[in-house]
């Protein structure tokens, strides 16, 4: 087992370096002069050179890559050339908001997707199944950002039920940080008003973000449930007079949870990617918004940093799933 984990970890490290190389290559085909931008529109030539030297932009490319690589591995993602701020520092500040949003969105996808998948399986090929299929196909096809705008338009502006954007009301103070996740911190600090407020703010962006994952979870659950319902032990249970409700809710659901969990791991990365669309719509101060704002200003270091962070989180999630599978299924370990 230890060897298996080690091998996987080694692979993880190699992939990370590969990703850094890709990002570095991409960022160095840029046409503009980053130093001139950082120096500001009115800067003199000498001012530009000051910046160029400060950011190491006057070194040859391989040297720049080596510097970048060693810096990244030490957790230093460089500085934003537009704001002069430290990228690692900024990412750490914005990541909890994104993490919280992704977690809630995932929870929503599971809590809505699993029952819908079950229902579709139980009512297979009937009206309800078709209706659910439409929901699931639609939630893939709906552009996330457009869904977000629709939710804002109807739920916030027309009905006034939920706030338009942000993490908290304008004047509400964040609970003193423990985990840096507002929902969790508010509960830990016993600030239930803040918790409700944070919850009200997170629901719409979470719905918009969860749409594609919802579709996947519905599909997987439906398929899995159909299979399970035909298996011997279910048939036996039914013959023993165990109620249909109990069969589906307990036995079948338990079996269908395994592929659902795998799906969650897979979707985690995609959801992190989706934040670049959703956070902008809902003014959600996370890394997606940060990446987009930097991207439209050709500020590469933050874009690279955010991409690396998202990529690394995704890799890490898959790594952990691999390990979990290896632990659950010894055959997999030996096959490696």
């Amino acid at each position: 087992m230890a060897l298996f984990v080690l091998k996987r970890a080694l692979l993880l490290g190699l992939m990370l370096i590969g990703l850094i190389l890709i990002m570095f290559t991409i960022s160095h085909v840029a046409p503009g002069d980053p130093a001139a931008v950082a120096a500001g529109p009115d800067a003199t030539r000498e001012m530009v050179e000051v910046i160029r030297e400060e950011y190491g932009l006057d070194e040859p490319l391989p040297v720049q890559f080596w510097i970048y690589l060693t810096n990244v591995l030490q957790g230093d993602l460089g500085r934003s050339i537009r704001t002069t701020r430290d990228v690692t520092h900024d990412l750490l500040r914005y990541f909890p908001a994104t993490f919280e949003l992704v977690m809630v969105a995932m929870l929503l996808a599971v809590l809505i997707g699993v029952p819908l998948g079950m229902l579709a399986a139980v009512f297979r090929d009937r009206g309800l199944d078709h209706a659910i299929r439409l929901v699931s196909v639609s939630s893939v096809a709906l552009p996330m950002f457009w869904l977000g705008l629709l939710l804002q338009f109807f739920i916030s502006l027309k009905l006034g039920w939920l706030p338009l954007g942000g993490q908290l009301g304008l004047l509400t103070e964040r609970p003193p940080p423990i985990t840096h996740l507002i929902l969790v911190d508010a509960l830990l600090r016993g600030q239930f008003d803040v918790f409700r407020e944070a919850l009200a703010h997170i629901i719409l962006p979470a719905i918009a973000l969860s749409a594609p994952a919802l579709a996947a979870i519905i599909r997987v659950n439906r398929a899995e449930m159909i299979e399970v319902l035909h298996q011997d032990f279910i048939v036996t249970a039914r013959a023993h007079g165990i109620s249909q409700f109990r069969i589906v809710a307990v036995y079948a659901l338990r079996n269908a949870m395994i592929p659902t969990l795998a799906m969650i791991g897979l979707r985690f990365g995609w959801m992190l990617g989706g934040t670049v669309l959703v956070e902008g719509v809902f003014d959600w101060p996370g890394i997606g918004l940060y990446a987009v704002q930097s991207a439209v200003n050709s500020d590469f270091q933050p874009v690279m940093g955010a991409t690396l962070l998202i990529g690394f989180s995704f890799m890490l999630a898959n790594f952990m799933i691999d390990i979990a599978y290896g632990w659950l299924d010894p055959r997999l370990r030996e096959a490696q």
């Binding site: 992939m15 990703l19 990002m23 990365g269 989706g274 991409t307 998202i310």
Partner: peptide, 10 residues
């Protein structure tokens, strides 16, 4: 390992 949209954005 990177969501396509994020890499495309970069």
């Amino acid at each position: 390992s990177v969501p396509g949209l994020v890499l495309a954005l970069a």
